[in-house]
Design a protein around this nucleic acid. Sequence first.
DNA 1: GCCTTGACGGCAA
DNA 2: GTTGCCGCCAAGG
Length: 128
Amino acid sequence: MSSNQSTSFPVRVYDLVRRVPRGRVITYGLIARLLGDPRKARQVGWAMAAAPDSVAHGGGPPLAAHRVINARGELSAAAVFGGYAVQRARLEAEGVMFLADGRVDLDVYLWLPDNEEAPPGGGAPASN
DNA sequence: GCCTTGACGGCAA
DNA sequence: GTTGCCGCCAAGG
């Protein structure tokens, strides 16, 4: 079911992002890689662009697009969530601590299919 | 049908 | 560590 090839690519992306718990982040390239096509990293971002924020692609739960960042740990473009501060505020609200560089420590907050649990030592109230 | 743009990634200078 | 360039795939003009 997870590897539903019949499902469209954008839908697979949403499904994967939906699995990311609060206080955790994921990269575009990682999503593409998990889908089996690491070269489609760009397409991942594109699929997210089609998702307003609360995805209405089937009546599922709202999509946490702000948890998706690039491989460098930097947030997305400035004109997406209304500004860098907006996306950062959302992540901070989930318990994500930012580095002095303004980036996210992927070594700590990067979500992986295996590490479904094991929340980072911080204070991220796991509730998703 | 061709060219440009784009929530990206990796490597080279 | 920073900046630049190329590659890749898809949509829009």
